[in-house]
């Protein structure tokens, strides 16, 4: 089973957008981050002021529940939890509170609490987000928490990740070269910088879940796997012949050409990876190399 398809509100962008240089992208990202922080500070101050007047100081969560074998949960439903708020509380904190204090059967994946294990990608107020990285104060109440769309729900907020892993494994996601020196390989700072963002992926699956193409074409490699391929294709240490080999994987029927540049993956990526740009760059690379495309 699957929860409802999210509405696509992102603007369509033209496919021929030139990708920015890495440092410009970096700067833009930092600015975005700063804007967000400033916005959040303002919002938080406003909300905290408001909260002083609020009677109980709690947040209302509406959480998707489903269990294939427990009576009353076999039909999906939403449970409400009123969670006492403290400054800095995240969606994950709120879920843990609800589980530990109200209902120990409330089930979700989580581990590191710091946006690096990628376990807790959720569909929060209609958008893919990491629970641990999402401040409650950034959200409208009630906070609606659902499992990632387009994936089978195992139980409550836990989805089956097998298909995601299969796609990740399908792109030969490991370093390969025909020319290994005895000692360390050299890599220019520029080249390391070029692949840096692509190596940040934490396999949370938010991008795949947000992608309309992946929802319609089960064989589409998807943004995360293509980004993984990008990470190696652009790594100068692998060498030219390996790059050619990788491009062949990318230009297959369910590879880069499926992407329609909707930018939903880039929008939701919790690690700010410019996924769409990476896919576009691989398309250009394919054209450049005169590879046939579908």
């Amino acid at each position: 089973m699957s929860t409802q398809v999210p509405e696509q509100t992102e603007e369509e962008s033209s496919a021929d957008t030139e990708s920015q240089s890495q440092s410009a992208a970096q700067q833009a990202r930092m600015e975005k981050k700063r804007d967000r922080a400033a916005q959040r500070d303002q919002q938080r101050e406003a909300e905290e002021a408001e909260r002083e007047f609020s009677e109980d100081g709690t947040y209302l969560l509406k959480v998707f529940r489903y269990d294939p074998e427990i009576a009353g949960k076999q039909e999906p439903r939403f449970d409400e939890f009123h969670v006492p708020y403290h400054t800095g509380m995240t969606v994950l904190d709120a879920l843990m509170y609800a589980r530990d204090e109200y209902d120990s059967s409330l089930t979700f994946r989580h581990s590191c609490r710091q946006a690096v294990c990628g376990s807790d990608a959720l569909f929060v107020n209609g958008r893919q987000r990491l629970g641990c990285k999402t401040q409650l104060s950034d959200l409208e109440e009630p906070v609606r928490i659902e499992p990632l769309p387009h994936q089978e729900v195992v139980k409550d907020l836990v989805v089956d990740m097998e298909h995601f892993y299969d796609q990740m494994h399908a792109v030969e996601p490991y370093f390969q070269t025909n020319d290994l020196p005895e000692g360390e390989q050299l890599q220019s700072r520029e080249n390391r910088e070029k692949i840096k963002m692509s190596t940040r992926c934490i396999w949370c699956g938010a991008c795949m879940s947000s992608c309309n193409i992946a929802a319609g074409d089960n064989k589409y490699l998807g943004p995360a796997a293509i980004n993984k391929a990008y990470r190696f294709t652009m790594d100068e240490r692998e060498g030219e012949d390996m790059k050619e080999h990788r491009m062949k994987i990318m230009e297959q029927e369910h590879g880069v050409w499926r992407c329609q540049t909707q930018f939903s993956c880039t929008e939701v990526c919790p690690k700010d990876i410019p996924l769409t740009e990476h896919i576009q760059e691989l398309k250009r690379e394919a054209v450049k190399n005169n590879l046939k495309f579908w």
């Binding site: 490991y174 370093f175 290994l180 390989q185 050299l186 890599q187 220019s188 700072r189 390391r192 692949i195 840096k196 190596t199 190696f232 790594d235 240490r237 692998e238």
Partner: peptide, 8 residues
């Protein structure tokens, strides 16, 4: 050699 993206 396994490709780890060390700072350079």
């Amino acid at each position: 050699h396994w490709g780890l993206a060390f700072s350079r």
